[in-house]
Design a protein around this nucleic acid. Structure first.
Lengths: 237, 237
DNA sequence: GAATTTAGGATTGTATACAACCAAACTGAA
DNA sequence: TTCAGTTTGGTTGTATACAATCCTAAATTC
C-alpha cells in the first residue's frame, strides 16, 4: 500500500471540504492528468483526501450529474469519454444557449462588470502565453460563466454553466495543447459588443467564437490510464 | 409513532428502487400533497419506503440538484418554494431552449413518433377532463420531453428536461387546479407544425404556448407562506 | 415580565462494518 | 490448448453507529 499520500488538515466538519475535493478532481481532469476513461476508485480518493468514502461518493455523484464522470452500477466511476459523434451536439447546444445569453446581456452590464471581465481576459492571456493549459482553460470558462450571469437569468446561467463545464472536458480530450486557439482574442471582442449594447453583433460574435473553439478540435483518437496517487502527489505535501 | 406505513417489497438490491423513490416523492410534490416549504426528514422517508437514510439522502441530493428540493447544511431538505419574482426567468429560459428545439425538431420526426405524441396528448386530455391534476401535469411534461428528444440533441434535451421539471413545480405552486389551461389544445397544434416541417411556425407556436402557461399562473397571491415577517407585515402590531 | 442561558430532543453529517457484486486468475476435464 | 465452472481479491452498495449541530422550550437571571 503506497503511503506517499498527504491528507488534508484533519478538521472536524469543514463545510466546503467537499467543494474543495470536487474542484481538485475536476481540475486534474481538465489538466488532462486524468484521461477520459480513467477509473476513479472511492477508496483511493478517500485516502488521498483524508476523508471517508461517504464524502467521495457524494462528490462523484455530483460530478456524474454534471456529466464529467460516468457511474456504472456496481462498476464505479470513470472520467467521461465523449464519443466524437456527440461532440457537435454539445457545441450546437452552446450556440443556442450562449447566443441567447449574449442577446439578453448586451447593454446590461455595468462598468464594474465590464472591467472585471477585461482583467479576467488579461489573466487568461497570461496563462495561455505561459502554456499553463489547465489554468487557461479554467479561466476561459470563468469568462463564459460571468458573461452568462450578465443575462440576469439564473436558470439560463445554470444551463450555460453545465454546458461550459462539460465542453471543457471535451476540449481537454480533443484539443492539442500547443494549438489551443487564442480564445482571449475572441473574448475581448465579445466584451466590447456587450458594452456597446448591440444584441445582433453580440450574438453573432458568440456563435463565431464557439465555432472557432469547435474547429480547433482534433476529432481523431485517444487515451491511456494512470495512477491516482502519483497524479495528486505533486500538490501540497 | 404511527405505524401505518407501507413498505415496498424488501428485496435485496433492486437496482431502480432509488429511481422509484425519486419518482414517488416528485409525484407527491406535483400533486401538491407536499406544499412548497414542507420539510422532508430523512428518517421518516426512510421508514416510509423501507430503506435506510443512505438511499433517501441520495434521492434528496438528486432532487436538490434538479432544483425541486432545497438542502440547507445541517437543516435538511424542504420542497423548493419559488419566489414570484423568479418565475418569469424560468419561463424565459424555456422559451429560449424549447423555441430552439422546435426549430431543430421541425420535419425530423418520423410517423411513429408523431403518432405516439398524438396518443399521448389524447391521454393528457382524458386526465385533464377527469380533473386528475397531478397525472395531467406529468403527462403534459412527458409531451414536452418527447418533443425535446426530436431535436436529436441530447445535451439540449437534458437542459429542457431540467427546466420542464422545475417549471412543473412552479405550476403546482401557482396554478389554480380548476383553471388549468387546456394545454392539450396547444400541444396538438405544436405536433401539427412539427409534422408539417415549418420551423418558423413551430417555434412561434411554442413561444405562444409557453406564454399561455405563464399567463394562467396566479402570481399575485404569495402562497409561499414561509416568510413570517412578510405575512404579518401589513397587519396590526 | 422580558431577555438570556441552558438543557433536551430531534435531525443531519461522517465514518465504518459488512454484504453484494464484478472481474480476472485459477482449476480441471474434454 | 480450450472451455466451462470455481475461487479469490478488490470494489461498490447499504445499513448503522456515533458525533456534530440545530431547534424548542424550560429555567435562570435581571
Amino acid at each position: 500500500m503506497a503511503k506517499a499520500t498527504k491528507k488534508s488538515t484533519p478538521e472536524k466538519r469543514s463545510p466546503h471540504q467537499e467543494q474543495l475535493i470536487y474542484e481538485r478532481i475536476f481540475d486534474v481532469i481538465l489538466d488532462h492528468k486524468l484521461a477520459p476513461g480513467a477509473r476513479l476508485t472511492e477508496e483511493a480518493l478517500g485516502e488521498i483526501f483524508g476523508v471517508s468514502r461517504t464524502i467521495i461518493r457524494r462528490v462523484l455523484l455530483r460530478l456524474s450529474h454534471e456529466g464529467v464522470v460516468e457511474i456504472k452500477p456496481n462498476r464505479g466511476a470513470s472520467v467521461t469519454s465523449t464519443p466524437v459523434a456527440d461532440v457537435a451536439q454539445f457545441f450546437e447546444a452552446r450556440r443556442v444557449i450562449e447566443g441567447a445569453i449574449m442577446r439578453m446581456a448586451a447593454g446590461r452590464a455595468n462598468i464594474y462588470e465590464i472591467d472585471d471581465l477585461r482583467s479576467l481576459v488579461a489573466e487568461e492571456k497570461r496563462y495561455y502565453e505561459s502554456r499553463t493549459r489547465g489554468k487557461g482553460l479554467r479561466t476561459s470558462n470563468e469568462v463564459h460563466f460571468r458573461i452568462a450571469a450578465l443575462a440576469r437569468n439564473e436558470p439560463l446561467a445554470d444551463m450555460a454553466r453545465q454546458l461550459i463545464s462539460r465542453t471543457a472536458l471535451i476540449i481537454a480530450q480533443y484539443q492539442d495543447a500547443a494549438q489551443s486557439a487564442c480564445a482571449y482574442c475572441d473574448h475581448a471582442a465579445l466584451i466590447d459588443a456587450l458594452e456597446a449594447g448591440d444584441p445582433d453583433k453580440a450574438e453573432a460574435l458568440m456563435l463565431e467564437h464557439i465555432g472557432h473553439i469547435h474547429s480547433t478540435l482534433h476529432l481523431s483518437e485517444e487515451s491511456p490510464a494512470v495512477d491516482l496517487f502519483e497524479i495528486f502527489s505533486d500538490e501540497q505535501e
